[in-house]
């Protein structure tokens, strides 16, 4: 992606940075939730978009990030920043392990999607039963709004931190896409046998992709914990985040660095509007998401980013 191609994204991020200064609490809440999904989706994109391995179970990484962060603080009194760092590393570790087991067994395509889903579900069921995670009642973090605790009295500050995380991962994605690693990811995505013939270690490349991807999605889990200060198994390891991360990428534009951010913001806005219009009808926003997924595959396989560039070309 050229620096010019990134301009709209940078302008958007700068505009979003103004929201905490002028926006209401509701709009900040909305933005933080959207940014957490955007970050998770950026993680999904590193594996699914860049490297072509579709995961249906990114909740496994989101939940590990969220739970490790929360459990270390609530049960062992670890500092929140240190806990977050450990949680991101733990997320990467779980990613590496799932990747090692599945990729070494030669699973790809639908099989990989299914096994990631199964791993996420096993984690969800275990977290729902284990005493250390608080079981079905969940885990509540103590409210103590100090910067040293990674908690802030002002929602705006937290929003800026989330925005910074998203911007950092955007920069990382652009850097990867342009560099050697991105080329290796793309080679594995397009044709594994050809990549192997070129001397690329396919397994090692996929493991790099899934560890990076899992670390980013685990970071999104940490942000969730620190912002909402409450977790249960259906939030942390629930399929909602696997679906939203994937959907944001498909809708926004797969394997483009900015796609997941566009997608997450667009979907979140749409979900909010739908819930407002059809008040009290549970799940109606998800019905729409499902239909959008089908429509995106059928009519806009390159997502919003693709539509935008097609529009630009049409306008000359």
């Amino acid at each position: 992606m050229s620096p010019r191609g990134l301009m709209p994204m940078l302008i958007l991020l700068a505009a979003l940075a103004l929201v905490p200064a002028f926006g209401s609490n509701t709009s900040i809440n909305f933005l933080v939730s959207a940014l957490i999904v955007a970050l998770a989706a950026q993680g999904w994109n590193l594996l699914g978009g860049f490297c072509g391995q579709f995961s249906f179970g990114h909740a496994a990484f989101f939940g590990t990030g969220a739970y490790v962060d929360a459990v270390l603080q609530a049960r062992y009194g670890v500092n929140a920043w240190a806990a977050s760092a450990v949680a991101i590393a733990a997320g990467a570790g779980v990613g590496w392990l799932i990747g090692f087991l599945s990729f070494r067994a030669g699973l790809r395509g639908s099989y990989f999607a299914l096994i990631t889903l199964a791993f996420a579900e096993v984690l969800r069921i275990s977290a729902n039963a284990a005493p250390i995670t608080g079981g079905a009642t969940g885990l509540l973090l103590k409210l103590d709004a100090r910067a040293a605790n990674f908690q802030f009295a002002s929602r705006g500050v937290f929003c800026l931190i989330a925005l910074t995380c998203v911007a950092l991962v955007l920069a990382l994605s652009v850097w990867i896409a342009r560099g050697r690693l991105g080329a290796q990811f793309a080679a594995v995505r397009e044709n594994e046998d050809a990549a192997r013939a070129l001397g690329i270690d396919v397994l090692a490349t996929k493991l790099r992709a899934i560890s990076l991807s899992a670390a980013v999605t685990a970071a999104a889990g940490c942000l969730y914990t620190q912002y909402f200060l409450y977790l249960d198994a259906n939030i942390a390891y629930g399929s909602w985040i696997s679906v939203e991360a994937l959907l944001a990428v498909i809708v926004g534009g797969i394997s483009t660095p900015a796609g997941p951010i566009f997608g997450a913001l667009a979907l979140h806005a749409l979900g909010e509007v739908t819930r407002l219009i059809a008040r009290g009808v549970t799940g109606i926003d998800l019905v729409l998401f499902g239909l959008i997924l089908i429509a995106a595959i059928a009519f806009a396989p390159t997502g919003l980013a693709g539509l935008a560039s097609r529009l630009r070309r049409a306008l000359g």
Binding site: F54, F56, G109, S110, A113, V243, L246, I250, T282, G283, I284, L286, V287, F289, G290, L291, I292, L293, I294, I297, A298, P301
Partner: peptide, 15 residues
Amino acid sequence: NTLLVTLGLSIAIEN
């Protein structure tokens, strides 16, 4: 694509 389309279908039907 098939995987994603049927995933979309299942999300829509279930909800």
